[in-house]
């Protein structure tokens, strides 16, 4: 009898979770489906998930009518530069915080982590002024610079490095291995999975970055993907629904592929990010 009750409870909770799964997945399925429909079909049979007359016209249109290649290159450049830069700076800082004691180390670490809680509005006007002063308005490098300031990498990498037994570092120091050698031969190989998943998250977040680019970028040719997509929500492109879905697909594509390939790494690293 209690076994039976447990079984029922399980089924009910499965159903609840399935509702969440549907809410999570439906928009993606919806986008895939409608991006392959013609304009009229998308309006007349919006509920039909498998297009009756699949077409790649929408994709052709967006690549010809918009500077989409340029926009993808822009987005890619921004995300790559931001990712590499943040990885290197966070990695070095995390190494110092994990394996050494120096004056003010704890306070400094605390301050870095506390910046995660600073809302972007606190820095947006002065940063806008900085970017405008150095002439990077309407330039993807103006989008890149303020994004470099992010302590999550320091936080996650420090947490990872602290799991490395100190004795490993000590034994190599006794062998006369220099700091660079310890970094390259010992710490890096042991933190590689975390570096990969944090790097991917940096890349995806930067790929999706929206707020800062809207302030900096003015011309379509300099846009990143989320900006061009935004145009299709406002009245301008608002009626051409399948086209908007096709651009959504292009925007989602790279993050989805990265996630599919590296989900194990990503889930492991990010599951642990809230556990101190």
């Amino acid at each position: 009898m209690p076994e039976n009750k447990m079984e029922w409870r399980r089924i009910i909770w499965h159903l609840v979770l399935i509702v969440f799964v549907l809410v999570a997945l439906f928009p993606i399925v919806f986008a895939v489906s409608n991006s392959f429909k013609g304009l009229s079909e998308s309006y007349n049979s919006i509920l039909q998930l498998i297009p009756a007359h699949p077409t790649i016209e929408n994709y052709k249109t967006i690549f010809t009518s918009l500077p989409l290649y340029q926009i993808i290159i822009n987005t890619f450049t921004v995300a790559t530069v931001v990712t590499l830069f943040k990885l290197v700076t966070s990695y070095l800082a995390a190494y110092a915080f994990s394996f050494s004691h120096f004056f003010g180390d704890k306070l400094l670490y605390f301050l870095f982590i506390a910046t995660i809680f600073v809302p972007f509005t606190v820095t947006m006007i002065p940063n806008y002024l900085i970017i405008s002063r150095i002439g990077l308005l309407n330039n993807i490098y103006g989008v890149i610079l303020p994004q470099l300031c992010d302590a999550t990498g320091i936080f996650l990498l420090t947490q990872t490095m602290r799991t490395i037994p100190k004795s490993l570092i000590e034994v190599s120091r006794l062998d006369g291995v220099k700091t660079v050698g310890i970094l390259r031969d010992i710490v890096f190989p042991l933190t590689r999975p975390a570096v990969i998943s944090i790097g991917i998250m940096f890349f995806i977040n930067s790929w999706n970055e929206y707020v800062w680019p809207t302030l900096i970028l003015k011309d379509r040719a300099n846009f990143t993907l989320p900006l061009i997509l935004q145009m299709f929500i406002s009245s301008e492109g608002g009626t051409n629904f399948p086209i908007a879905m096709a651009i959504s697909m292009v925007t989602m594509f790279i993050p989805l592929v990265l996630y599919l390939f590296f989900q194990k790494y990503i889930l492991n690293t990010f599951s642990q990010s809230g556990i101190k």
Binding site: S167, E170, V171, R173, L174, G176, V177, K178
Partner: peptide
């Protein structure tokens, strides 16, 4: 430490 030419065995062995 690296210039003292000393070997050390650690409690947790410190194997890479």
């Amino acid at each position: 430490a690296g210039k003292r030419h000393i070997s050390m065995v650690f409690q947790d062995y410190a194997l890479y």
